[in-house]
Design a protein around this nucleic acid. Structure first.
Lengths: 200, 200
DNA sequence: GTCTATAAAAGGATAGAC
DNA sequence: GTCTATCCTTTTATAGAC
């Protein structure tokens, strides 16, 4: 998993995997028919672990559903910063690296994106009336993914986190213009009037 | 150039290049020190040809600067549709495929993105007062690139152009909320009052 | 400048002992 | 289940004739 994230699929040799895992060829091929099956297993691990590995760490202590979206973005930002903008989203990299993926691989890449989008869509649903009725929640959730992936691509290409930050800023601006401001946590009295910007 | 677009860099062998070009090994290595130098030459060709190869074909007959942006998006859409959503943006694919590019490669990938962003920024500048003063034109131009690349990634992963279309729709929505509506071509009279949506 | 032939290495995968 | 040894293919790159 880590090697595919660091170096991609093609540039990771079976010898690399054996060395990193501290096992020998016979062991790997006892469990996996071939290298591609290691990849599908890794993708399955991402699919099965999106909550424990990605969402829960990012959302610890966060309750506001829109804030959860930005916290998730922060997570990708941190990964970029920690690696000097060399490692981005493992799924996105694999998706563009493997030009003609076999169906089992492509399905799993798509499933990863779908689960990710589901999580964002859940946030938008949880935001309730802050998302006006006319807004397509699914399309907006997809747009968060689109922006994150595009922003990661540019930040990596330039080795400059500014490109990611500006992409997220634009997305926040889009949200600010699209969504109603957050209502205060319902103190059960006359509606409070908050002034000033809620974000960005 | 075409092979790197179709199959990526790593999956294109020197033998593939020789076969497609109809030449032999000796010829290629007479002009290029190695395979990576073929890549940098390809990237230089993209850099030098952005106008003739990309912008001019997309913008033929288009005068409105904002419309030019959408026409450029249409170009990427067409490339996706024509290839059943298998080939996307050649630069974006290479950028994510090559995880630790040597400096000469990374520089050229970044230069390609910069030139592309310059072209969009020029459109935004040409749009004049339609882009309100507070709007960061450079950041918005980058955001167009971010959205295009992210949209291409999803469309390819799902083999479904709908993901690209929805990303562009969101971007258009962002533009609609950010920009002033286009003024009619200055009929030199009292300001016309247009109602209804100008786009999307 | 282009050709053929080939070197030298790395890659994925297998065989068979233990 | 794991080990060592190795097969076979592919890959990049070079040598040297023409």
């Amino acid at each position: 998993m880590h090697l595919f994230w660091e170096k991609g699929y093609g540039s990771t040799s079976v010898a690399d995997i054996l060395s990193r895992a501290g096992v020998n060829s016979g062991s790997l091929y006892h469990y996996f028919p071939g290298k591609q099956d290691v990849l599908t297993a890794v993708l399955d691990t991402y699919i099965g672990g999106i909550r424990e590995m990605l969402l829960e760490p990012a959302w610890r202590g966060v309750v506001d559903p829109i804030e959860k979206i930005w916290k998730l973005m922060d997570g990708y930002r941190e990964a970029l910063v920690q690696t000097d903008c060399t490692y981005g989203c493992p799924i996105g990299s694999l998706a563009l690296e493997i030009h003609e993926p076999d169906p089992p691989v492509r399905e799993r890449l798509a499933k990863n994106f779908t689960n990710w989008t589901d999580a964002i869509e859940d946030c938008l649903k949880a935001a309730g009336r802050r998302v006006p009725p006319g807004v397509d929640r699914r399309a907006l959730a997809e747009f968060v993914l689109t922006t994150m992936e595009g922003g990661v691509m540019l930040a990596r290409s330039y080795r400059d986190i500014g490109y990611f930050d500006r992409a997220i800023d634009q997305l926040k601006e889009h949200f600010n213009r699209l969504l109603r401001p957050a209502t205060s946590p319902a103190r059960s009295g006359p509606r409070q009037r908050k002034k000033g910007k809620s974000h960005a």
